[in-house]
Amino acid sequence: MESTGIVEKLREEFPDDLLESYEHLGQKAVMVKRDHIVEICRFLRDECNMNHLMCLCGVDNSKRKGPFFERFEVVYQLYSISQKQMFRLRVQVPEHDCSIESITSLWIGANWLERECYDLMGINFNSHPDQRRILTPDDWEGHPLRKEYPLRGDTEWIGYEELKAKSRELGKFDFYDNLSKEKGGHD
């Protein structure tokens, strides 16, 4: 079965959800609406043998333009181990309702990938069993991979400040004060 066949099948099954299909550098991709993403993924997994979830990531579209682009995008990279075919799903997520259905019911491994996506991009996954931050600390502010997030911030992370305060309180030797004295500046 060819990948184009998969696109045809998808178009047949979900005529309203399929926005666009294209091929770039030999890799096939479709852009779909977010409403039936779980059904589409289940269809691809069960009917088209796309059983391996290679990659799931979020993209911030705010600095590029395209026909169907919303603010965010979730990219699912699927692969059929038996048929050696790769297929990409791109799902647009608008900024005002920044959420999409979770596919953890289909792939257990999607759990952490979606958590990462939430942590770094701020996309909410509905009915995700355990949506918490994963790579950044629990009290981190902002979502680092959004385009408006600065590469270098001007304030320290609140946890670091707390840690310094605690170490001042407990330690006999004030490392940070001495450090700044040596430098002749202030921290």
Binding site: N51, H52, L53, I81, L106, W107, I108, G109
Partner: peptide, 8 residues
């Protein structure tokens, strides 16, 4: 089956 589902 589980290994594929866990994306190993």
């Amino acid at each position: 089956r589980d290994a594929v589902s866990l994306c190993l």
